[in-house]
Design a protein around this nucleic acid. Structure first.
Lengths: 203, 203
DNA sequence: GAATCTATTTGACATTTGTCACAAAGCAAT
DNA sequence: ATTGCTTTGTGACAAATGTCAAATAGATTC
């Protein structure tokens, strides 16, 4: 297991009290009124975990979605021992899978790309809040819409752009992916084999 | 223009009063309380339109989403005079584009596959309702989630299944597509050329 | 029915990409 | 440095698919 300088495994790293947590959530979910924020924080907790940890496993029901404070994750589908990455996410992004949110067995696996700090949110509890709290309902709605627009953009790119264009697009828009994700995973994300990506890169 | 038996162009077809409209919406949006339903109906209107009509045009802002009462639509992206279909929808399905809902220029075009009857909903007005009405907020949320799950399934299929498997899957799950959509459009939906689809079919 | 248009199919060929095998490079542990 | 492990790159070949051109089928109009 590789360790990263900014987070030595030996250190007994901070936990986070509800007050700190509230501060962080306030800055990310600025649409929430103070009262809604308090309710939200009740069902949130801080979490640190090591590279390779699966936040969500394919085929199983889970109860959380997450906000990445520090670190990164990949999401992928598996079939016949072949993995295809669907998305990557890093600092300040809220993540989860739609099937998990719907209470269904997840179709994707979500795994830490590196040792990470996260905040996790209990889906059932947050959903309960959305039944009575309009601002929380809207917040969730916004997160889902943002996610949907990303997926749609990905579909568009897969249909209309060559793998070379897609590779260039990654370099320009999210170069951090190249530093944090293996080329094997990037290839699957782009929809080509490892070898083809390698040939694209050697130009 | 082809005409369909069940809807002669010559007939002066019914319009629909608010009461009828409410009845239809009640059966589709059964989660809505009576009061919410009344508010919803205020911003709904009945519409009939002919094959080829574009409900939503790529690159433009629009103000409605729709429920299909009778008929069908296709959604497609265009680039370099090549069209790629993203989804098809028929009776009893609620449709629209995510970008339109967000007030952005639409990335897709949505076009009638045949003469159709629809109910259209004013997005801005309905959005206003979601600010104060929880059940409407949840209804919209559910529609978006359903849409998202469809898109994700499509992405999954594009990555993991062969075009032949995808064709068979259409036959089994939504055979009505084959009757109502041209093979050219189906080919683009499956992610292959017309000619390739033709060869798949000749087996 | 003949003419016209569009949609679909078929053939020949070129191109792209995947697959397999193996080489090279990078990294970690001894 | 040496060894072992994982990741990435390269070559040769096969398979799948796209492209172009032409033929056929189906539908529409006169």
């Amino acid at each position: 297991m590789r360790r990263y300088a900014y987070w030595p495994a030996e250190a007994n790293y901070k936990t986070m009290d509800k007050l700190e947590l509230k501060g962080i959530l306030k800055s990310h979910f600025s649409s929430l009124e103070n009262e809604s924020l308090n309710a939200f924080v009740k069902h949130s907790s801080y979490l640190k975990s090591t590279k390779g940890t699966k936040l969500i496993s394919e085929g199983r029901r889970h109860h959380y979605f997450y906000l990445i404070i520090e670190g990164g994750v990949k999401s992928y589908y598996s079939r016949d021992s072949r993995d295809v990455c669907m998305w990557f996410a890093f600092e300040n992004e809220a993540i989860g899978t739609m099937t998990t949110y719907e209470g269904l067995p997840s179709k994707e696996t979500v795994e830490l790309l590196e040792d990470s700090e996260l905040i996790k949110f209990n889906i059932e509890k947050i959903k309960e809040l959305t039944r009575t709290d309009l601002s929380i309902s809207h917040l969730i709605n916004d997160l889902i819409i943002e996610h949907t627009l990303c997926i749609e953009e990905r579909l568009y790119q897969l249909q209309f752009t060559t793998s070379e264009e897609r590779y260039k697009s990654i370099i320009q828009t999210t170069p951090e992916i190249l530093q944090k994700v293996s080329l094997t995973d990037i290839a699957s994300y782009l929809g080509v084999s490892r070898e083809t990506l390698s040939r694209i890169r050697s130009k």
